[in-house]
Nucleic acid binder design. Structure first.
Length: 122
DNA sequence: ACACTGACCACTG
DNA sequence: CCAGTGGCCAGTG
């Protein structure tokens, strides 16, 4: 990061995927991580967002944890910044959680590859 | 160069 | 059902 050129890596990819999230939709760290590598790299996605917090082109506010909670709001300029940004995009937020999260959920795997990562329960 | 940490998730017991 | 633990990648001390 400090270097002018960013080597291709998880960060770059995660930020790139974040930019693909349509306005008014939200995604999760795990989904993005799973799309890039595995769900276990979810932590890095959050970190990538933090690294990109200076980059306004990366809608980090559209990325929440798996239960639709604004877990990363503490890393924004202000605690209410993330929620405000979401509300501006018609994304309802209630008590720190995305309303109708299931409907607004944008899964890169499902949307970009067409493969349903969540096989129906047996 | 080693160890630890981090906006998380899924699997085990 | 709740608690515990491993794991992923990159950056920092």
């Amino acid at each position: 990061m400090s270097k002018s050129k960013q080597k291709d890596g998880f960060f770059k990819d995660a930020q790139d995927v974040a930019r693909l999230i349509p306005k008014g939709r939200v995604s999760t760290y795990g989904a993005i991580a799973n799309y890039l590598s595995s769900a276990k790299a979810a932590r890095m996605v959050g970190w990538a967002m933090n690294a990109a917090s200076n980059d306004a082109s990366v809608p980090a506010h559209r990325v929440v944890n798996r239960i639709g909670m604004l877990s990363g709001k503490n890393h924004f300029e202000t605690l209410s910044r993330m929620e405000e940004l979401l509300l501006k995009e018609d994304t309802k937020v209630k008590d720190g959680q995305i309303v109708d999260f299931e409907k607004l959920f944008w899964d890169p795997i499902l949307e970009l590859t067409g493969v349903d990562p969540y096989p129906k329960k047996s």
